[in-house]
Design a protein around this nucleic acid. Structure first.
Lengths: 242, 242
DNA sequence: CCAAGTATACTTGTATACAAGTATTATAAA
DNA sequence: TTTATAATACTTGTATACAAGTATACTTGG
Protein backbone atom coordinates (compact mmCIF):
# COMPACT_ATOMS: atom_id res chain seq x y z
CA UNK A 1 0.00 0.00 0.00
CA UNK A 2 1.36 3.40 -0.93
CA UNK A 3 0.89 6.32 1.41
CA UNK A 4 -1.24 9.18 0.13
CA UNK A 5 0.87 12.25 -0.56
CA UNK A 6 -0.48 15.76 -0.09
CA UNK A 7 -0.14 18.41 -2.73
CA UNK A 8 3.23 20.14 -2.69
CA UNK A 9 1.93 23.27 -4.35
CA UNK A 10 -0.28 25.59 -2.25
CA UNK A 11 -3.77 24.93 -3.51
CA UNK A 12 -5.07 28.36 -2.57
CA UNK A 13 -2.72 29.90 -5.14
CA UNK A 14 -4.64 28.11 -7.83
CA UNK A 15 -8.05 29.60 -7.22
CA UNK A 16 -8.83 30.42 -10.81
CA UNK A 17 -6.34 28.20 -12.63
CA UNK A 18 -7.29 25.62 -15.21
CA UNK A 19 -6.80 21.92 -14.57
CA UNK A 20 -3.79 21.98 -16.84
CA UNK A 21 -2.16 24.74 -14.79
CA UNK A 22 -2.87 22.88 -11.58
CA UNK A 23 -1.31 19.71 -12.88
CA UNK A 24 1.69 21.65 -14.18
CA UNK A 25 2.17 23.38 -10.82
CA UNK A 26 2.00 20.14 -8.92
CA UNK A 27 4.19 18.19 -11.32
CA UNK A 28 6.71 21.01 -11.27
CA UNK A 29 6.94 20.80 -7.50
CA UNK A 30 7.23 17.04 -7.62
CA UNK A 31 10.04 17.21 -10.14
CA UNK A 32 11.99 20.01 -8.48
CA UNK A 33 11.57 18.48 -5.06
CA UNK A 34 12.97 15.23 -6.38
CA UNK A 35 9.79 13.33 -5.62
CA UNK A 36 9.78 12.46 -9.30
CA UNK A 37 13.35 11.57 -10.13
CA UNK A 38 15.11 12.84 -13.21
CA UNK A 39 15.25 10.20 -15.90
CA UNK A 40 11.76 9.02 -15.06
CA UNK A 41 9.39 8.66 -17.98
CA UNK A 42 5.95 10.18 -17.74
CA UNK A 43 3.13 8.88 -19.88
CA UNK A 44 0.08 10.98 -20.56
CA UNK A 45 -2.25 8.11 -19.84
CA UNK A 46 -0.65 7.29 -16.53
CA UNK A 47 -0.61 10.90 -15.41
CA UNK A 48 -4.23 11.28 -16.44
CA UNK A 49 -5.07 8.30 -14.27
CA UNK A 50 -2.97 9.58 -11.35
CA UNK A 51 -4.52 13.03 -11.38
CA UNK A 52 -7.96 11.72 -12.24
CA UNK A 53 -8.35 13.98 -15.23
CA UNK A 54 -8.39 13.45 -18.95
CA UNK A 55 -5.40 13.64 -21.24
CA UNK A 56 -6.24 17.16 -22.49
CA UNK A 57 -5.11 19.08 -19.39
CA UNK A 58 -2.22 16.65 -18.95
CA UNK A 59 -0.96 17.47 -22.42
CA UNK A 60 -1.28 21.13 -21.58
CA UNK A 61 0.75 20.65 -18.42
CA UNK A 62 3.47 18.70 -20.21
CA UNK A 63 3.80 21.43 -22.80
CA UNK A 64 4.29 23.95 -20.01
CA UNK A 65 6.89 21.86 -18.21
CA UNK A 66 8.66 21.23 -21.47
CA UNK A 67 8.95 24.96 -22.11
CA UNK A 68 10.46 25.26 -18.64
CA UNK A 69 13.06 22.65 -19.49
CA UNK A 70 11.91 20.37 -16.70
CA UNK A 71 10.95 17.58 -19.07
CA UNK A 72 11.79 16.61 -22.62
CA UNK A 73 8.92 15.59 -24.88
CA UNK A 74 9.84 12.51 -26.88
CA UNK A 75 8.13 10.00 -29.10
CA UNK A 76 7.37 7.59 -26.33
CA UNK A 77 6.75 9.45 -23.12
CA UNK A 78 8.14 12.60 -21.56
CA UNK A 79 11.55 12.24 -20.00
CA UNK A 80 12.05 14.08 -16.72
CA UNK A 81 15.10 16.34 -16.81
CA UNK A 82 14.80 17.84 -13.35
CA UNK A 83 16.64 20.75 -11.82
CA UNK A 84 20.37 20.53 -11.26
CA UNK A 85 22.63 22.89 -9.40
CA UNK A 86 23.80 24.16 -12.79
CA UNK A 87 20.22 25.05 -13.69
CA UNK A 88 19.83 27.07 -10.55
CA UNK A 89 23.04 28.95 -11.23
CA UNK A 90 21.79 29.62 -14.72
CA UNK A 91 18.46 30.90 -13.49
CA UNK A 92 20.30 33.33 -11.28
CA UNK A 93 22.46 34.36 -14.22
CA UNK A 94 19.27 35.33 -15.96
CA UNK A 95 17.87 37.08 -12.91
CA UNK A 96 21.06 39.06 -12.55
CA UNK A 97 20.94 39.90 -16.22
CA UNK A 98 17.38 41.11 -16.34
CA UNK A 99 17.31 42.83 -12.98
CA UNK A 100 20.44 44.74 -13.92
CA UNK A 101 18.77 45.75 -17.13
CA UNK A 102 15.67 46.79 -15.25
CA UNK A 103 17.67 48.85 -12.81
CA UNK A 104 19.25 50.82 -15.64
CA UNK A 105 15.79 51.72 -16.81
CA UNK A 106 14.58 52.50 -13.31
CA UNK A 107 17.29 55.11 -12.95
CA UNK A 108 15.62 57.08 -15.68
CA UNK A 109 12.10 57.13 -14.28
CA UNK A 110 10.24 58.16 -11.17
CA UNK A 111 10.29 55.26 -8.73
CA UNK A 112 8.48 56.71 -5.72
CA UNK A 113 5.37 54.60 -6.26
CA UNK A 114 7.49 51.53 -6.79
CA UNK A 115 9.41 52.14 -3.57
CA UNK A 116 6.16 52.46 -1.66
CA UNK A 117 4.84 49.24 -3.11
CA UNK A 118 8.07 47.40 -2.37
CA UNK A 119 8.03 48.63 1.21
CA UNK A 120 4.55 47.24 1.61
CA UNK A 121 5.62 43.86 0.25
CA UNK A 122 8.63 43.87 2.53
CA UNK A 123 6.38 44.37 5.54
CA UNK A 124 4.27 41.47 4.40
CA UNK A 125 7.40 39.39 4.22
CA UNK A 126 8.27 40.31 7.78
CA UNK A 127 4.86 39.24 9.01
CA UNK A 128 5.18 35.98 7.11
CA UNK A 129 8.48 35.32 8.84
CA UNK A 130 7.01 36.18 12.22
CA UNK A 131 4.38 33.50 11.76
CA UNK A 132 6.81 31.11 10.11
CA UNK A 133 4.69 31.01 6.99
CA UNK A 134 7.19 29.86 4.38
CA UNK A 135 4.65 29.75 1.57
CA UNK A 136 3.41 33.26 2.13
CA UNK A 137 6.98 34.47 2.45
CA UNK A 138 7.94 32.88 -0.85
CA UNK A 139 4.91 34.38 -2.56
CA UNK A 140 5.85 37.85 -1.38
CA UNK A 141 9.51 37.35 -2.18
CA UNK A 142 8.73 36.45 -5.77
CA UNK A 143 6.18 39.25 -5.95
CA UNK A 144 8.84 41.68 -4.75
CA UNK A 145 11.05 41.02 -7.72
CA UNK A 146 8.16 40.78 -10.14
CA UNK A 147 6.99 44.21 -9.01
CA UNK A 148 10.38 45.68 -9.78
CA UNK A 149 10.44 44.08 -13.19
CA UNK A 150 6.92 45.19 -14.09
CA UNK A 151 7.81 48.76 -13.23
CA UNK A 152 9.67 49.36 -16.47
CA UNK A 153 6.86 48.16 -18.71
CA UNK A 154 9.01 46.06 -20.97
CA UNK A 155 6.98 43.22 -22.38
CA UNK A 156 9.91 41.09 -23.48
CA UNK A 157 11.79 41.40 -20.20
CA UNK A 158 8.49 40.56 -18.60
CA UNK A 159 8.27 37.55 -20.90
CA UNK A 160 11.62 36.28 -19.69
CA UNK A 161 10.42 36.70 -16.16
CA UNK A 162 7.21 34.82 -16.88
CA UNK A 163 9.20 31.96 -18.34
CA UNK A 164 11.57 31.56 -15.43
CA UNK A 165 9.18 32.48 -12.66
CA UNK A 166 7.39 29.16 -12.19
CA UNK A 167 10.58 27.16 -11.71
CA UNK A 168 12.05 29.82 -9.47
CA UNK A 169 8.92 30.05 -7.42
CA UNK A 170 8.84 26.31 -6.90
CA UNK A 171 12.49 26.26 -6.00
CA UNK A 172 12.17 29.12 -3.52
CA UNK A 173 9.07 27.59 -2.03
CA UNK A 174 10.82 24.31 -1.33
CA UNK A 175 13.98 25.79 0.10
CA UNK A 176 12.14 28.32 2.25
CA UNK A 177 10.05 25.58 3.79
CA UNK A 178 13.24 23.96 5.03
CA UNK A 179 14.97 27.16 6.01
CA UNK A 180 12.13 28.60 8.03
CA UNK A 181 12.34 25.57 10.27
CA UNK A 182 16.04 24.90 10.35
CA UNK A 183 17.68 28.22 9.54
CA UNK A 184 15.26 30.75 10.90
CA UNK A 185 17.99 33.35 11.41
CA UNK A 186 18.68 33.40 7.65
CA UNK A 187 15.60 35.47 7.14
CA UNK A 188 17.04 38.49 8.91
CA UNK A 189 19.72 38.59 6.26
CA UNK A 190 17.21 38.17 3.45
CA UNK A 191 15.11 41.05 4.77
CA UNK A 192 18.23 43.14 5.08
CA UNK A 193 19.10 42.41 1.46
CA UNK A 194 15.71 43.50 0.30
CA UNK A 195 15.90 46.69 2.32
CA UNK A 196 19.19 47.37 0.62
CA UNK A 197 17.54 46.74 -2.72
CA UNK A 198 14.77 49.22 -1.99
CA UNK A 199 17.33 51.75 -0.85
CA UNK A 200 19.27 51.28 -4.09
CA UNK A 201 16.14 51.93 -6.10
CA UNK A 202 15.15 54.91 -4.01
CA UNK A 203 18.55 56.56 -4.28
CA UNK A 204 19.18 55.20 -7.77
CA UNK A 205 22.51 53.98 -6.52
CA UNK A 206 23.97 51.56 -9.03
CA UNK A 207 26.69 50.26 -6.74
CA UNK A 208 24.28 49.50 -3.97
CA UNK A 209 22.06 47.64 -6.39
CA UNK A 210 24.88 45.48 -7.65
CA UNK A 211 25.86 44.78 -4.06
CA UNK A 212 22.38 43.76 -2.96
CA UNK A 213 21.84 41.71 -6.10
CA UNK A 214 25.06 39.84 -5.55
CA UNK A 215 24.32 39.25 -1.90
CA UNK A 216 21.05 37.79 -3.01
CA UNK A 217 22.93 35.68 -5.47
CA UNK A 218 25.49 34.46 -2.95
CA UNK A 219 22.61 33.38 -0.81
CA UNK A 220 21.72 30.82 -3.44
CA UNK A 221 24.42 28.36 -2.55
CA UNK A 222 22.69 27.79 0.76
CA UNK A 223 19.40 27.44 -1.02
CA UNK A 224 20.77 24.66 -3.17
CA UNK A 225 21.81 22.71 -0.12
CA UNK A 226 18.36 23.25 1.29
CA UNK A 227 16.81 21.84 -1.83
CA UNK A 228 18.66 18.61 -1.27
CA UNK A 229 17.57 18.58 2.35
CA UNK A 230 14.06 19.16 1.12
CA UNK A 231 14.32 16.25 -1.27
CA UNK A 232 15.48 13.94 1.48
CA UNK A 233 12.80 15.13 3.86
CA UNK A 234 10.20 14.31 1.29
CA UNK A 235 11.47 10.80 0.76
CA UNK A 236 11.59 10.13 4.49
CA UNK A 237 8.94 7.66 5.51
CA UNK A 238 6.95 7.99 2.36
CA UNK A 239 6.48 5.19 -0.10
CA UNK A 240 6.54 6.11 -3.71
CA UNK A 241 4.06 5.00 -6.32
CA UNK A 242 5.50 2.49 -8.72
CA UNK B 1 -15.56 35.84 -53.21
CA UNK B 2 -12.29 35.98 -51.31
CA UNK B 3 -9.01 35.35 -53.05
CA UNK B 4 -7.06 32.31 -51.94
CA UNK B 5 -3.95 33.33 -50.06
CA UNK B 6 -0.77 31.26 -50.12
CA UNK B 7 1.06 30.29 -46.98
CA UNK B 8 3.31 33.02 -45.66
CA UNK B 9 5.56 30.63 -43.78
CA UNK B 10 7.90 28.43 -45.85
CA UNK B 11 6.28 25.03 -45.82
CA UNK B 12 9.52 23.14 -46.29
CA UNK B 13 10.70 24.37 -42.89
CA UNK B 14 7.89 22.43 -41.31
CA UNK B 15 8.81 18.97 -42.52
CA UNK B 16 8.43 17.22 -39.21
CA UNK B 17 6.30 19.71 -37.32
CA UNK B 18 2.95 18.90 -35.77
CA UNK B 19 -0.25 20.44 -37.05
CA UNK B 20 -0.26 22.75 -34.07
CA UNK B 21 3.21 24.03 -34.89
CA UNK B 22 2.25 24.58 -38.49
CA UNK B 23 -0.82 26.55 -37.56
CA UNK B 24 1.20 28.58 -35.06
CA UNK B 25 3.87 29.36 -37.65
CA UNK B 26 1.33 30.45 -40.20
CA UNK B 27 -0.78 32.47 -37.79
CA UNK B 28 2.36 34.14 -36.48
CA UNK B 29 3.27 35.25 -39.97
CA UNK B 30 -0.24 36.46 -40.63
CA UNK B 31 -0.27 38.48 -37.43
CA UNK B 32 3.20 39.98 -37.79
CA UNK B 33 2.65 40.76 -41.46
CA UNK B 34 -0.51 42.59 -40.54
CA UNK B 35 -2.69 40.26 -42.59
CA UNK B 36 -4.53 39.66 -39.35
CA UNK B 37 -4.92 43.05 -37.75
CA UNK B 38 -4.28 43.67 -34.09
CA UNK B 39 -7.49 43.89 -32.14
CA UNK B 40 -9.02 41.08 -34.18
CA UNK B 41 -10.61 38.29 -32.21
CA UNK B 42 -9.77 34.72 -33.08
CA UNK B 43 -12.13 31.92 -32.19
CA UNK B 44 -10.93 28.35 -31.98
CA UNK B 45 -13.86 27.07 -33.97
CA UNK B 46 -13.40 29.55 -36.77
CA UNK B 47 -9.66 28.90 -36.98
CA UNK B 48 -10.29 25.16 -36.99
CA UNK B 49 -12.62 25.62 -39.92
CA UNK B 50 -10.20 27.93 -41.75
CA UNK B 51 -7.27 25.58 -41.36
CA UNK B 52 -9.39 22.49 -41.85
CA UNK B 53 -8.18 20.86 -38.68
CA UNK B 54 -9.75 20.12 -35.33
CA UNK B 55 -9.64 22.36 -32.30
CA UNK B 56 -6.86 20.40 -30.59
CA UNK B 57 -3.98 21.66 -32.73
CA UNK B 58 -5.59 25.10 -32.85
CA UNK B 59 -5.56 25.29 -29.07
CA UNK B 60 -1.93 24.26 -29.12
CA UNK B 61 -1.12 27.00 -31.61
CA UNK B 62 -2.95 29.65 -29.61
CA UNK B 63 -1.05 28.67 -26.47
CA UNK B 64 2.20 29.12 -28.37
CA UNK B 65 1.24 32.51 -29.76
CA UNK B 66 0.05 33.60 -26.36
CA UNK B 67 3.44 32.77 -24.85
CA UNK B 68 4.97 34.91 -27.59
CA UNK B 69 2.76 37.82 -26.64
CA UNK B 70 1.20 37.95 -30.08
CA UNK B 71 -2.27 37.22 -28.77
CA UNK B 72 -4.01 37.47 -25.42
CA UNK B 73 -6.16 34.51 -24.39
CA UNK B 74 -9.45 35.72 -22.95
CA UNK B 75 -12.77 34.27 -21.93
CA UNK B 76 -14.37 34.78 -25.28
CA UNK B 77 -11.83 34.45 -28.02
CA UNK B 78 -8.17 35.28 -28.37
CA UNK B 79 -7.43 38.95 -28.93
CA UNK B 80 -4.68 39.69 -31.42
CA UNK B 81 -2.01 41.96 -29.97
CA UNK B 82 0.30 42.09 -32.93
CA UNK B 83 3.83 43.42 -33.16
CA UNK B 84 4.48 47.11 -32.67
CA UNK B 85 7.65 49.05 -33.23
CA UNK B 86 8.09 49.07 -29.48
CA UNK B 87 8.00 45.27 -29.44
CA UNK B 88 10.73 45.08 -32.03
CA UNK B 89 12.89 47.47 -30.07
CA UNK B 90 12.31 45.34 -27.01
CA UNK B 91 13.23 42.16 -28.82
CA UNK B 92 16.48 43.76 -29.81
CA UNK B 93 17.02 44.87 -26.21
CA UNK B 94 16.83 41.22 -25.29
CA UNK B 95 19.08 40.14 -28.14
CA UNK B 96 21.64 42.71 -27.13
CA UNK B 97 21.37 41.56 -23.54
CA UNK B 98 21.80 37.87 -24.16
CA UNK B 99 24.36 38.14 -26.94
CA UNK B 100 26.49 40.37 -24.74
CA UNK B 101 26.21 37.81 -21.99
CA UNK B 102 27.12 35.05 -24.40
CA UNK B 103 30.15 36.96 -25.62
CA UNK B 104 31.49 37.30 -22.09
CA UNK B 105 31.34 33.54 -21.80
CA UNK B 106 32.85 32.99 -25.23
CA UNK B 107 35.92 34.96 -24.20
CA UNK B 108 36.67 32.26 -21.67
CA UNK B 109 36.45 29.26 -23.97
CA UNK B 110 37.95 27.94 -27.17
CA UNK B 111 35.93 29.30 -30.08
CA UNK B 112 37.82 27.90 -33.08
CA UNK B 113 35.10 25.39 -33.95
CA UNK B 114 32.45 28.05 -33.54
CA UNK B 115 34.30 30.42 -35.85
CA UNK B 116 34.53 27.71 -38.49
CA UNK B 117 30.85 26.98 -38.24
CA UNK B 118 29.95 30.66 -38.43
CA UNK B 119 32.12 31.10 -41.50
CA UNK B 120 30.26 28.28 -43.16
CA UNK B 121 26.90 29.86 -42.35
CA UNK B 122 28.11 33.20 -43.61
CA UNK B 123 29.04 31.63 -46.95
CA UNK B 124 25.59 30.13 -47.15
CA UNK B 125 24.17 33.58 -46.55
CA UNK B 126 26.20 34.96 -49.41
CA UNK B 127 24.90 32.29 -51.77
CA UNK B 128 21.36 33.01 -50.66
CA UNK B 129 21.86 36.67 -51.47
CA UNK B 130 23.36 35.82 -54.84
CA UNK B 131 20.19 33.94 -55.78
CA UNK B 132 17.94 36.48 -54.08
CA UNK B 133 16.56 33.79 -51.80
CA UNK B 134 15.22 35.85 -48.92
CA UNK B 135 13.83 32.86 -47.06
CA UNK B 136 17.06 30.93 -47.14
CA UNK B 137 18.96 34.04 -46.15
CA UNK B 138 16.69 34.60 -43.15
CA UNK B 139 17.06 30.99 -42.10
CA UNK B 140 20.84 31.24 -42.13
CA UNK B 141 20.83 34.63 -40.46
CA UNK B 142 18.81 33.32 -37.55
CA UNK B 143 20.92 30.17 -37.47
CA UNK B 144 24.05 32.31 -37.28
CA UNK B 145 22.99 33.89 -34.03
CA UNK B 146 21.53 30.69 -32.65
CA UNK B 147 24.84 28.97 -33.27
CA UNK B 148 26.66 31.60 -31.24
CA UNK B 149 24.19 31.30 -28.41
CA UNK B 150 24.30 27.51 -28.32
CA UNK B 151 28.08 27.61 -28.07
CA UNK B 152 28.07 28.48 -24.38
CA UNK B 153 25.77 25.64 -23.37
CA UNK B 154 23.56 27.69 -21.12
CA UNK B 155 20.11 26.20 -21.02
CA UNK B 156 18.34 29.26 -19.65
CA UNK B 157 19.93 31.67 -22.10
CA UNK B 158 18.96 29.15 -24.73
CA UNK B 159 15.45 29.20 -23.33
CA UNK B 160 15.23 32.95 -23.76
CA UNK B 161 16.41 32.50 -27.32
CA UNK B 162 13.84 29.81 -27.98
CA UNK B 163 11.11 32.08 -26.71
CA UNK B 164 12.02 35.07 -28.82
CA UNK B 165 13.22 33.21 -31.89
CA UNK B 166 9.89 32.49 -33.59
CA UNK B 167 8.75 36.10 -33.58
CA UNK B 168 12.16 37.30 -34.64
CA UNK B 169 12.37 34.76 -37.40
CA UNK B 170 8.98 35.77 -38.76
CA UNK B 171 9.88 39.43 -38.56
CA UNK B 172 13.22 38.95 -40.30
CA UNK B 173 11.60 36.76 -42.94
CA UNK B 174 9.05 39.41 -43.82
CA UNK B 175 11.43 42.31 -43.92
CA UNK B 176 14.09 40.42 -45.87
CA UNK B 177 11.56 39.51 -48.53
CA UNK B 178 11.00 43.20 -49.14
CA UNK B 179 14.60 44.23 -48.81
CA UNK B 180 15.99 41.66 -51.19
CA UNK B 181 13.82 43.13 -53.90
CA UNK B 182 13.91 46.79 -53.06
CA UNK B 183 17.11 47.31 -51.11
CA UNK B 184 19.43 44.67 -52.47
CA UNK B 185 22.51 46.69 -51.60
CA UNK B 186 21.62 46.48 -47.88
CA UNK B 187 22.86 42.95 -47.83
CA UNK B 188 26.47 43.92 -48.38
CA UNK B 189 26.31 45.81 -45.12
CA UNK B 190 24.63 42.93 -43.32
CA UNK B 191 27.32 40.52 -44.50
CA UNK B 192 29.97 42.98 -43.42
CA UNK B 193 28.39 43.16 -39.98
CA UNK B 194 28.46 39.44 -39.62
CA UNK B 195 32.08 39.27 -40.71
CA UNK B 196 32.85 41.80 -38.03
CA UNK B 197 31.00 39.66 -35.54
CA UNK B 198 33.01 36.59 -36.45
CA UNK B 199 36.20 38.58 -36.22
CA UNK B 200 35.21 39.80 -32.75
CA UNK B 201 34.65 36.24 -31.61
CA UNK B 202 37.86 35.01 -33.18
CA UNK B 203 39.98 37.74 -31.58
CA UNK B 204 37.81 37.88 -28.46
CA UNK B 205 37.66 41.61 -28.96
CA UNK B 206 34.94 43.03 -26.75
CA UNK B 207 34.89 46.45 -28.39
CA UNK B 208 34.51 44.99 -31.82
CA UNK B 209 31.65 42.82 -30.64
CA UNK B 210 29.80 45.76 -29.15
CA UNK B 211 30.36 47.66 -32.36
CA UNK B 212 29.04 44.92 -34.61
CA UNK B 213 26.12 44.24 -32.31
CA UNK B 214 25.13 47.86 -32.31
CA UNK B 215 25.47 48.13 -36.06
CA UNK B 216 23.16 45.19 -36.28
CA UNK B 217 20.83 46.97 -33.93
CA UNK B 218 20.88 50.25 -35.82
CA UNK B 219 19.93 48.28 -38.87
CA UNK B 220 16.60 47.55 -37.24
CA UNK B 221 15.06 50.93 -37.88
CA UNK B 222 15.14 50.15 -41.58
CA UNK B 223 13.67 46.75 -40.92
CA UNK B 224 10.70 48.28 -39.17
CA UNK B 225 9.94 50.44 -42.18
CA UNK B 226 10.22 47.36 -44.36
CA UNK B 227 7.72 45.56 -42.20
CA UNK B 228 5.18 48.27 -42.93
CA UNK B 229 5.96 48.04 -46.60
CA UNK B 230 5.49 44.33 -46.33
CA UNK B 231 2.13 44.79 -44.65
CA UNK B 232 0.95 47.07 -47.41
CA UNK B 233 2.23 44.78 -50.12
CA UNK B 234 0.25 41.97 -48.64
CA UNK B 235 -2.95 43.95 -48.53
CA UNK B 236 -2.54 45.08 -52.11
CA UNK B 237 -5.12 43.46 -54.34
CA UNK B 238 -6.07 40.81 -51.88
CA UNK B 239 -9.46 40.52 -50.30
CA UNK B 240 -9.61 39.58 -46.70
CA UNK B 241 -11.90 37.00 -45.16
CA UNK B 242 -14.61 38.56 -43.06
C1' DC C 1 19.66 -22.43 -27.46
C1' DC C 2 19.17 -18.77 -30.85
C1' DA C 3 17.15 -15.90 -34.45
C1' DA C 4 13.52 -14.00 -37.07
C1' DG C 5 9.07 -12.56 -37.40
C1' DT C 6 4.58 -11.59 -35.54
C1' DA C 7 1.23 -10.30 -32.14
C1' DT C 8 0.19 -7.16 -28.57
C1' DA C 9 0.15 -3.54 -25.52
C1' DC C 10 1.72 0.45 -25.22
C1' DT C 11 2.75 5.53 -27.01
C1' DT C 12 1.36 10.22 -28.98
C1' DG C 13 -1.43 13.27 -32.34
C1' DT C 14 -5.78 14.59 -33.90
C1' DA C 15 -10.80 14.60 -34.10
C1' DT C 16 -15.08 14.72 -31.91
C1' DA C 17 -18.43 15.10 -28.02
C1' DC C 18 -20.18 17.20 -24.12
C1' DA C 19 -20.66 20.56 -20.37
C1' DA C 20 -20.68 25.03 -18.38
C1' DG C 21 -20.62 29.70 -18.96
C1' DT C 22 -21.13 34.37 -21.55
C1' DA C 23 -22.59 37.78 -24.84
C1' DT C 24 -26.01 39.02 -27.91
C1' DT C 25 -30.38 39.39 -29.73
C1' DA C 26 -35.07 39.23 -29.80
C1' DT C 27 -39.26 39.62 -27.38
C1' DA C 28 -42.43 41.39 -24.23
C1' DA C 29 -43.99 44.61 -20.85
C1' DA C 30 -44.22 49.31 -19.15
C1' DT D 1 -39.57 54.28 -27.03
C1' DT D 2 -37.25 52.11 -23.44
C1' DT D 3 -36.17 48.59 -20.24
C1' DA D 4 -36.13 44.04 -18.51
C1' DT D 5 -36.15 39.30 -19.34
C1' DA D 6 -35.61 35.16 -21.83
C1' DA D 7 -33.97 32.50 -25.70
C1' DT D 8 -30.17 31.52 -28.59
C1' DA D 9 -25.90 31.18 -30.60
C1' DC D 10 -21.79 31.59 -29.53
C1' DT D 11 -17.32 30.84 -26.43
C1' DT D 12 -13.78 27.87 -23.93
C1' DG D 13 -12.41 23.68 -20.91
C1' DT D 14 -12.44 18.92 -20.41
C1' DA D 15 -13.44 14.16 -21.65
C1' DT D 16 -13.48 10.60 -24.90
C1' DA D 17 -12.69 8.24 -29.40
C1' DC D 18 -9.93 6.94 -33.06
C1' DA D 19 -5.79 6.46 -35.94
C1' DA D 20 -1.02 5.71 -36.76
C1' DG D 21 3.22 4.41 -35.16
C1' DT D 22 6.74 2.06 -31.85
C1' DA D 23 8.73 -0.94 -28.44
C1' DT D 24 8.35 -5.23 -26.22
C1' DA D 25 7.55 -9.79 -25.63
C1' DC D 26 6.30 -14.02 -27.29
C1' DT D 27 6.12 -17.61 -30.59
C1' DT D 28 7.76 -20.31 -34.12
C1' DG D 29 11.27 -22.19 -37.01
C1' DG D 30 15.98 -23.55 -37.38
Amino acid sequence: MTEKKDFLYPQKWLSKASTGDRVASELRMQIISGWIESGAILSENKLAADFNVSRSPIREALKILSAENLIRLERMGAVVIGLTEKDIEEIYDVRLLIESFVFERLIKIDTSNLVTELSKILEMMKIAIKYKDADEFSLQDVLFHETIIRAINHSYIKMIWDNTKPVMEAFILLSMRVRIEEKYEDFDRIIENHELYIEAIKTKNRELMVKSLHQNFDDVQGKVDDLWISQQTLSRGVEKND
